[in-house]
Design a protein around this nucleic acid. Structure first.
Length: 243
DNA sequence: AACCCCTACAACCGCAATTAA
DNA sequence: CTTAATTGCGGTTGTAGGGGT
């Protein structure tokens, strides 16, 4: 049973991409745009599966990627967003223009986790290690690790509120900063009231401009942080409490 | 120079969610 | 409504390259 493979593996390349493959993919997407990853490899003359092409484009070849080291501001923002969203890398990436979910995930696992540990902070809970160590004795929450199946099962039974009791996580996440293909960039959902915001008009429930609803990086005035009240790009988690 | 270890990150895999037929 | 196909996401792996011995 199960699903059929996404591609004919016997006839696809794997591993690192060559310059020629990159060039083919770039040329094809420039000519035809993104989409229909399933048929793209054949059309572009690539011996790759669609998944692989999509990943290569999104994580490496896209022209709007920032690349380079993360700034201190980005660093801080990632930590704050992770404390709110957990391992929702795509949501975090949506708030960091030019960064991909894969890049942020790698950065988190190689740099940020270590940094937080060195500061005595549990990267899973964003609470002091000694505090979470004590909590572990009670309910094992802070000892959670994705690799630990047993703990994972326990984790599933513990409400989010218990894991971060000082955070009101009954919040709504806005769509990505970039207008999606599916919505055509015409509608978005207010971060605060969740009502639809159409054609770049501001939501009436709050002062958040349309730029913060769905086109922050393309409208010029936004740095992509306003939705978090990050004018100064410093996030107070409690300021994000939603009803 | 050779070997080993560690780090960083590109890429893969499996599954869930979404969309199309 | 159901099923199959496709896309997207998060976890994990593989490996190149750098540093230490």
């Amino acid at each position: 049973m199960g699903r059929s493979p996404c591609c004919e593996k016997a006839h696809t390349n794997k591993g690192a991409w060559t310059k020629e493959e990159d060039d083919r993919l770039i040329a094809y997407i420039r000519a035809h745009g993104e989409g229909c990853w399933r048929s793209l490899p054949k059309a572009a003359g690539l011996l790759r599966c669609g998944k692989s092409c999509r990943l290569r484009w999104i994580n490496y070849l896209r022209p709007d990627l920032k690349r380079g080291n993360f700034t201190d501001e980005e660093d801080e923002l990632i930590i704050k967003l992770h404390s709110l969203l957990g391992n929702k890398w795509s949501l975090i990436a949506a708030r960091l223009p030019g960064r991909t979910d894969n890049e942020i995930k790698n950065y988190w696992n190689t740099h940020v986790r270590r940094k937080l540990f060195s500061q005595g902070i549990d990267p899973s809970t964003h609470r002091p290690l000694n505090e979470t160590a004590a909590a572990r004795d009670v309910n094992t929450v802070s000892s959670y690790s994705g690799k630990d199946a047993e703990k994972d099962e326990k984790m599933k039974t513990i409400p989010v509120e218990e894991r971060c009791p000082d955070l009101n996580l009954d919040l709504k996440i806005s769509p990505p900063a970039e207008p999606s293909m599916k919505t055509g960039g015409k509608t978005a959902v207010c971060f605060v009231c969740t009502s639809e915001v159409n054609n770049g008009k501001d939501c009436t429930c709050c002062n958040f401009a349309a730029a913060a609803h769905g086109s922050s990086s393309s409208k010029g005035n936004s740095n992509g942080y306003e939705f978090l009240e990050l004018k100064s790009r410093v996030l107070d988690c409690r300021s994000l409490e939603m009803k």
